[in-house]
């Protein structure tokens, strides 16, 4: 918890860490910030046109399992795509080195 002097209330009041480290002088200026959205149901959550709103379910899924990095938290498809990308990077590195090596020894024209 951080505190700052609130000249309107005339005492120390609760504050965000960010606001507490910004000297405000004599002006009382409460810093209003949007709350961090942790698994809040979005306001436009009505299912429309037969399209199911899956945002809430996905929020629950992604705010669980925080020990898994976000690029793998979606399930098996994530792992497959990630592995394809990594294999492509390793394969391409060897291919690039091969092409550069080949280009470094041009055939002489005589």
């Amino acid at each position: 918890m951080s505190y700052k002097f609130n000249s309107l209330a005339g005492r120390l009041t609760k504050s965000s860490a960010f606001a507490a480290y910004i000297p405000q002088g004599l002006k009382a200026s409460p810093v209003i910030r949007a709350p961090i959205v942790w698994a809040q149901k979005p306001t436009t959550s009505q299912d429309a046109e037969g399209v199911k709103n899956q945002v809430y379910e996905r929020q629950k899924q992604f705010q669980r399992n925080k020990e898994i990095p976000v690029h793998l938290r979606g399930g098996n498809v994530d792992v497959i795509l990630y592995r394809i990308t990594l294999i492509g990077c390793v394969f391409g590195t060897f291919w690039t080195i091969y092409e550069l090596a080949k280009a470094s020894f041009p055939k002489s024209n005589d």
Binding site: R33, I36, A39, Q40, V55, Q61, V70
Partner: peptide, 14 residues
């Protein structure tokens, strides 16, 4: 992943 971080994790504060 950026969409996941914003829409699903709620990391995009003001």
């Amino acid at each position: 992943d950026v969409v996941r971080e914003s829409t699903y994790e709620g990391q995009h504060t003001s």
